[in-house]
Every structure is written in C-alpha cells, then in structure tokens.
Amino acid sequence: MDHSGISVLFEGTNFERLLGGLWVTVKIAAVALIVGLILGIILGVLRTFKNRPLRVLLRLYLEFFRIVPTVVLLFLFYYILPRQLNFNLPGDQLATLVFALWVAAEMSDIVRGALISVPQHQRESGKAIGLNRYQLYRYVLIPQAISLEIPATINLATRVIKTTSLLMLISVMDVINIGQQIIEANNHTHPTGVFWVYGLIFLFYFLIDYPLSWWAKRLEKKRLERANG
C-alpha cells in the first residue's frame, strides 16, 4: 500500500492548495455576509414602512432571490447578464455579489419579522418621549429586533457557507474545485484519494459550520430563558 489515498493530501503543495481554496470560500462567504447583512437590515427596515409600492418592490426582490435556485442565480449572473449587459466581473467577485444579494433578501425578511414582533407598546413609549422615526428605529426597535434575530441570522450564515460549494460551477477556485483538480490529477496513482480529499473538505465545512450552529442554538436557548425569567 505504498499508494494509500491519504498521502494525496500531503503530496507536493496539495494541502496548502486546499487551504487556499478554503480561504477563497471563506472570503466570499464572509464578504457576502457582511455586505448582505447591512443591506438586509436597511431593506428590512424599509419593509416595515407604510409606503405600499416600496413594500411590493422589496417583496418581489425577496421572492425572486428566495424562489430562484442559487445555481440558476449564479449562471444567470455569470453567463447571461455579462452577454446581455456587457458587464464583466471575475468569478469570485461575481459570486460575492450574487451571494450578498441573496443574503440581503433573506436578511430583509428576518429583520422585518423581528421588527414587527417588537411589541407595539415599545413603539408608542418611544414616540411618547418625542423620538422621531429614525431615533425610534436606531435606539429602540433595531436593538430589540437584533436580539430576536441573531439565531436566524447565524443559521443563514451556515447556509451561505454550505452553498459556496456551488461556486465551482462558475469556475471559482474554491475548496471544492481545488479538491476536484487534485482528485483528477492523482486518479491513476491514488484511486482512493477521492475519499480522503472529500473527507477533508467535509471536515473543513464541519469545523466552520458546526460551531456557528451550536452558537445559534445556545443564543436562542438563552433568549428564551431570559424571556421566561
């Protein structure tokens, strides 16, 4: 067994390349999440306003990004829009954009839901001390909404990180794509390499996502304890 599959991981620069791919994955997910969360909070706030056309427009935006599968969105932005609109971005930036728009859409729904579940009395007692609409959102409603929505936001983050595995479809050199290359290059010499490479990728994703999911559960439990206490 001089050609055990596990040695594929450590041959040449394979391991570093996989880590590099993981870095691309994490970077895209992180930037998309940061941009998407900020944009999503703004859109979520706007969706609680009374302005009907604005609400309809934002609702359509949300439904579009929610209904259309992420793969289709990526293809749409990678293959179709550049040709139609003459708009070209490298794959990783484009992926970041698509993911950020998707996060913003999902986040707007989370924020809206949290904002409208802040009791009406809070709004009224804020108004009663003379707060204007901006101050009411800034000091009273948004801080309370955030504590309600953090678990849902973390769960969204884990979904986004998992979904980055689609990025290889638009030729982004993420951890999956690099893993695939390593497997193909070593297929003859190490037929069981595929198991080890994907095993490692599984471990990477698990190490990133599991703590997040654990954290979300813990925060939710704490919040419920506090609400009942």
Binding site: H121, Q122, S125, K127, G130
Partner: peptide
C-alpha cells in the same frame, strides 16, 4: 409637542435593551 406632554402607560414599557 410630546416633549411637553409626558405620558405614562399601564404596561410601563421601559426599553428592555437599555
């Protein structure tokens, strides 16, 4: 005007985040 007319409610409604 609300700065001149204070109001206190039945359910207190302090801001729990502050």
């Amino acid at each position: 005007i609300r700065q001149k007319i204070g109001m206190v409610f039945q359910s207190y409604d302090l801001f729990p985040n502050l």
